[in-house]
């Protein structure tokens, strides 16, 4: 059966309900929360601080050190706490997705510590993490050329969809897994793509269509992020 209607009744280019807030962690220099429906990520920024061990220091610019993790209660089956192969990879791609937007030249030999914790997961955690992190970095008063907006696109049973849930990621057609998942991040102002991963199969034509949709949706998320920051101090 082809995938003609989404499980939760959304349109194909519609995200789940977005909720966002900045300043959720009082002890951090900057913090934010970002939700895609049931997927909920919080991000905290500390620093810049002098980077140790010293051999990691860069005398030309500051470094972003990102740690992504899912908390043990965030998924149905308890996740073993601590870094895993998956979380180390996501930490690395998140760092690379956010670095182009940051201007850390004024903080040589120092590091900005960014912690992203997923407190509830239902697919799309790295994209929610990047959105939260981008808000937290801005909230920490760090110089940035732009915010980073991120969303996942995918192909379910031949149909291009935005912001997949776990059920959609596991969608099977004739007992064969038939989904493609593409996490995507962009700096909306200049349109530069900072994260693009692909899990599954897709034709080049379909990929182009998927990325176009992702760009459109990222611009919507960008507006939400701007709004959240502008309303942050009115409370």
């Amino acid at each position: 059966m082809p995938y003609t209607k989404r499980f939760d009744g959304r349109k194909f280019d519609e995200t789940r309900k977005i909720e966002a807030e900045v300043g959720v962690i009082p002890n951090a220099d900057g913090s934010a929360m970002f939700c895609f429906g049931d997927t909920k990520a919080i991000a905290a920024v500390y620093g810049p601080r002098t980077l140790y061990p010293q051999h990691l220091q860069d005398p030309t610019r500051g470094r972003l050190k990102c740690i992504y993790d899912m908390l043990s209660f965030s998924v149905t089956e308890r996740k073993r706490p601590g870094p895993s192969r998956r979380s180390i990879e996501i930490s690395m791609v998140t760092e690379k997705a956010l670095n182009p937007a940051l201007k850390l030249e004024k903080f040589p030999n120092s590091a900005v510590n960014l912690y992203i914790m997923v407190i509830q997961a239902n697919a799309g955690t790295r994209t929610a993490g990047i959105n939260a992190a981008s808000l937290a970095l801005a909230h920490a008063g760090l110089p940035m050329t732009d915010l980073v907006s991120s969303v996942s696109v995918g192909k379910i049973g031949g149909k291009i969809c935005v912001d997949l849930t776990k059920d959609e990621e596991d969608y099977k057609e004739k007992d064969e897994k038939d989904t493609t998942d593409i996490p995507f991040a962009i700096m909306p102002r200049n349109g530069k793509v900072t994260l693009l991963q692909l899990d599954g199969k897709i034709t080049s034509k379909e990929l182009k269509e998927a990325l176009q949709t992702a760009k459109k949706v990222c611009n919507q998320i960008y507006e939400v992020q701007k709004k959240v920051l502008q309303e942050a101090l009115n409370k």
Binding site: A101, M144, T145, L147, L229
Partner: peptide
């Protein structure tokens, strides 16, 4: 006078 709140990239 109310000063404007700006976000990075604006």
């Amino acid at each position: 006078k109310e000063r404007k709140l700006v976000v990075p990239g604006q």
